[in-house]
């Protein structure tokens, strides 16, 4: 079953965070071990990020998060660091799909992206479409994911989803 409520501490980033900032191109070829590659996540803008981040933490960013290449290493390293969810004003399309496909929860919410600050404690409820800012005592709302994406997330990503449903043999 999908975990639909996440509580964590926030790491804040700006807009247009491209896939090369998330993980530099040269790191992707060093090894196939994603945990190893994840050590270098965000290295260009936040030194030692991988050491500072804790299981369950949340990333909050501006518009166009994940723009650039179609490679899946970007959401994979974020998941490997233990990040529970990403909130952004908007996501680049391919990153958005890739995140869902690997079972990483993402939320689009402009208000949250603007008001939440680094270090805030937030609680996201995917089903209700709410983000509680426990530090500031505020609540923001977002449109819950379309059913199809929730189903993929529920299954733990596209691979288990397609194996369970023998491809796309599902009721629409």
């Amino acid at each position: 079953m999908l975990k639909t409520v996440f509580k964590g501490k926030v790491w804040k980033f700006g807009r247009d965070i491209n896939t090369d900032i998330i993980i530099a191109g040269k790191r992707k070829y060093d090894t196939l071990d994603i945990k190893e590659i994840a050590k270098y996540a965000f290295e260009a803008i936040n030194h030692d990020f991988s050491k500072k981040v804790k299981d369950g933490d949340v990333i909050v960013a501006g518009a166009n998060f994940g723009c650039g290449s179609s490679r899946e290493h970007a959401p994979l390293v974020i998941k490997a660091l233990g990040i529970s969810a990403i909130i952004a004003e908007s996501f680049a399309r391919i990153f958005y799909r890739n995140a869902i496909n690997i079972g990483l929860s993402i939320v689009e919410c402009k208000e949250a992206s603007e008001k939440i600050e680094e270090g805030d404690e937030v609680e996201i409820n995917l089903e209700k479409g709410t983000i509680k800012n426990l530090t500031k005592n505020e609540e923001y709302h977002f449109k819950p994911l379309p059913l199809m994406m929730t189903q993929i997330l529920n299954a733990g990503g596209l691979v288990p989803f397609l194996s369970e449903n023998n491809g796309y043999q599902i009721k629409q």
Binding site: I94, L158, V159
Partner: peptide
């Protein structure tokens, strides 16, 4: 699309 989506399309 990313490789996982493409894998799904190639398979099914």
């Amino acid at each position: 699309m990313g490789s996982t989506d493409i894998a799904g399309a190639m398979a099914f």
